[in-house]
């Protein structure tokens, strides 16, 4: 499987602190990969680097063969990489449909069609995605009025609107009530089986174990382990990193 996303030797420093220390990570087309690690291990920072929200201090990142190390986030998004955030980012004052409409694949629009209005094809896609995420009845609600879980689903929907090839999901289940968690898992499975690669950051280890083909473990900014979920869970180094303090 050729790597869709290939990051090598990524280093990110904040002042004196090295948040990401020479990490190699890759995701193949259609893969479902989990990224776990204790608090402060640098997962979200790594995501910021991969989605180009942050500049990296050294290393290289390529997406579908294109070197994106210096590209701006919107360029990366237009190449087919979508991302959600730990602190949910939706357009709170706009309605659910409006949020979705604004998340189209902007590369298809170009500057000339910027001054047009939303077309029927987009609206159809919005409807079908909302249905897929079971948010249809909320389409005219203000996004800020939704519950946490509903907003998470919306954010995922917005990411899917742009027909991404790779989806970076940051803490997709945090703040979501348990019944909804399995719904989300199902939806993600379906998305993945439609050919969208997914890299997700998760605290919920069970969620990861169930869903992912492969798991990468980060600790203190560096890759600690990598393998199938069962391999990784059994790795003593991983256990130590997570439960180290309690293992006295």
């Amino acid at each position: 499987m050729t790597a869709l996303l290939d990051a090598r030797g990524v280093v990110k420093r904040f002042g004196g602190l090295t948040a990401v220390d020479g990490v190699n990570i890759s995701v193949g087309a259609g893969e479902l990969v989990g990224l776990i690690g204790p608090n402060g291990s640098g997962k979200t920072t790594l995501f910021d680097c991969l989605s180009r929200v942050s500049a990296i201090d050294s290393g290289s990142i390529s997406f579908d063969g294109v070197d994106i190390t210096r590209r701006r986030p919107h360029q990366v998004a237009r190449l087919g990489l979508a991302r959600t955030f730990q602190l949910i980012r939706v357009y709170r004052e706009l309605t659910v449909s409006e949020n979705m409409e604004l998340s189209i694949q902007w590369r298809r629009i170009g500057t000339t069609r910027l001054f047009g209005r939303t077309d029927a094809a987009t609206r159809r896609r919005v409807e079908s995605l909302l249905e897929f995420l079971m948010l249809s009845r909320l389409r005219h609600e203000r996004a800020g009025a939704l519950s946490g879980g509903q907003r998470r689903l919306l954010e995922i929907g917005m990411a899917l609107m742009s027909e991404p090839r790779l989806l970076l999901l940051d803490e997709a289940t945090s703040g979501v009530n348990p019944t909804l968690v399995s719904e989300i898992a199902d939806r993600l499975q379906e998305v993945n089986s439609n050919g969208v690669a997914i890299l997700l950051v998760e605290h919920n280890v069970g969620f990861v174990a169930e869903l992912c083909h492969r798991v990468v473990v980060l600790d203190r900014g560096a890759k600690l382990a990598e393998g199938t979920p069962s391999q990784v869970m059994a790795d003593p180094a991983v256990i130590e990193a997570y439960f180290g303090a309690e293992g006295e």
């Binding site: 701006r72 919107h74 998004a77 979508a82 980012r89 709170r92 917005m158």
Partner: peptide, 14 residues
């Protein structure tokens, strides 16, 4: 509403 989010969704904010 959310410049970072917008940028991340393909809008050339600059």
């Amino acid at each position: 509403e959310d410049e970072v989010g917008a940028e991340m969704r393909g809008i050339n904010t600059t």
